[in-house]
Amino acid sequence: MRRFLACPTKSEEYSHAHRDHPWRHQRPPQLHLSPGARLASLAPAQGPTHAGTTITLTGTNLTTTTGVHFGFALASFTVASPTQIPAVAPAGLAGPVTVTAVTPAGTSNGLSCTRADAPAI
């Protein structure tokens, strides 16, 4: 003779799973990130197409910056203060490029930096 076990209904499975959950009487932990970086200005806001020009990013919440991008190119940089980052612009094509700062809280707003070819001699 075969015996069959009764299967629990979906609502019984759900209540059982949640009844034993460790957070049943607590709120789940909240993830708190620091506010994201916000850029206000670039100085200078223009430069040559070759690499090596230092451009200072000024803004807020820059302390945790992990990357500075000129378009898709990464720049070398140092966090000088919570409001300033000197970055060495990589080489790129002539024209405008968007500069952003990346932090654990996300990517900052972008500011435009214009690259120009050196005048011909």
Rank of each mutant, 00 (worst) to 15 (best):
M1Y: 04
M1C: 10
R2K: 11
R3W: 05
R3C: 05
R3M: 06
F4L: 14
P8R: 09
T9S: 14
K10G: 09
S11R: 11
E13V: 09
E13T: 04
Y14A: 14
H16A: 13
H16K: 11
A17N: 12
A17S: 09
H18T: 12
R19G: 06
D20I: 08
D20C: 08
H21S: 12
H21N: 14
H21C: 12
P22I: 04
W23L: 12
R24F: 06
R24W: 05
Q26E: 13
Q26A: 10
R27T: 10
P28Y: 08
P29C: 10
P29M: 10
Q30W: 01
L31N: 14
H32I: 14
L33S: 12
S34D: 14
S34G: 10
R38C: 04
R38W: 02
R38M: 01
A40D: 14
A40C: 06
S41V: 02
L42R: 05
P44F: 03
P48I: 00
A51W: 02
A51T: 06
G52F: 00
T53I: 07
T53F: 02
T54V: 13
I55Y: 00
L57D: 05
T58M: 00
N61S: 01
N61F: 03
N61Y: 02
N61M: 02
L62N: 13
T63R: 15
T63D: 15
T64K: 10
T65N: 07
T65D: 15
T66H: 05
H69D: 15
F70A: 15
A73N: 04
L74S: 15
L74H: 10
S76P: 07
S76M: 05
T78M: 08
T78E: 14
A80C: 03
S81R: 03
T83F: 01
Q84F: 00
Q84S: 11
Q84E: 12
P86W: 01
A87E: 02
V88L: 08
A89Q: 02
P90K: 09
G92H: 00
A94S: 14
P96Y: 05
P96N: 09
T98D: 11
V102N: 09
V102R: 07
T103Q: 01
P104C: 00
P104V: 01
A105Y: 00
G106R: 06
S108N: 00
G110L: 03
L111H: 03
L111C: 07
S112M: 10
C113R: 03
T114S: 12
R115I: 05
A116Y: 07
P119G: 11
P119M: 13
